[in-house]
Simulated scan of single mutants.
Amino acid sequence: MTEGHLTSFHAAAQQGPRPLPLFLSLLRSETAASPERREAALAGLKAYQQAERPPERVPPPAIAESGRARLRDYGGSGPPVVFVPSLINPPFVLDLAEDNSLLRWLAAQGLRPLLVDWGSPGPEARGEGLDHHIARLLLPLIDSLGEPPLLAGYCLGGTLALAAASLRPVRGVATIAAPWRFVRYGDPARAAIAAQWEAARPTCQALGLVPMEVLQSGFWQLDPARTVAKFEKFAAMAPGSPQARGFVALEDWANGGAPLTYAVGEEMFERFFAADRPGHGRWWVGGTRIAPSRLACPAIEFISATDRIVPAASAAGLPAQRILRSGHVGMVVGGRAQAELWEPLRDWLIAAAHTR
Rank of each mutant, 00 (worst) to 15 (best):
T7E: 06
A11C: 03
Q14L: 09
P17I: 11
L22Y: 11
F23N: 06
L27D: 10
S29I: 12
S34I: 05
P35L: 08
P35F: 07
R38M: 14
A41Q: 05
L42I: 09
G44Q: 05
A47E: 07
Q49W: 04
R53T: 09
R57Q: 11
P60K: 02
R68G: 03
R72Y: 02
Y74M: 02
L87E: 08
N89E: 13
P91F: 03
F92Q: 14
L94I: 02
L94F: 02
L102H: 04
R104A: 13
A108K: 15
L111W: 12
R112Q: 10
P113I: 01
L114P: 00
D117C: 06
P121S: 12
P121E: 11
P123N: 05
P123S: 11
P123C: 05
E128F: 06
G129S: 08
G129C: 08
H132S: 14
D143W: 03
E147S: 12
E147T: 13
L150F: 08
L150S: 08
L150G: 06
A152V: 05
C155F: 08
G157K: 07
G158F: 14
L160A: 13
A164K: 10
A165S: 09
S166I: 09
L167D: 08
R171P: 04
G172K: 14
I176L: 15
I176K: 07
R181L: 07
Y185M: 06
R190A: 09
A194M: 04
Q196D: 14
A199F: 11
R201W: 09
L207K: 11
V210H: 08
P211Y: 13
E213H: 12
L215K: 04
Q216K: 13
S217Y: 01
W220L: 05
A225N: 03
A229G: 00
A229K: 08
F231T: 01
G240P: 00
G240R: 13
Q243T: 09
Q243E: 15
E251Q: 14
G256M: 02
G257A: 12
A258D: 15
P259H: 10
E266D: 15
E270H: 03
E270P: 00
E270G: 04
F272C: 02
F272A: 02
D276E: 05
D276C: 07
D276N: 14
H280Q: 12
G281V: 11
G281K: 12
V285G: 09
G286S: 09
G287T: 00
R289P: 00
A291R: 12
P292V: 06
S293A: 15
A305Y: 01
I309K: 00
V310W: 06
A313Q: 11
P319S: 13
I323E: 09
I323V: 14
R325T: 15
H328V: 06
G330A: 11
L345M: 13
D347I: 10
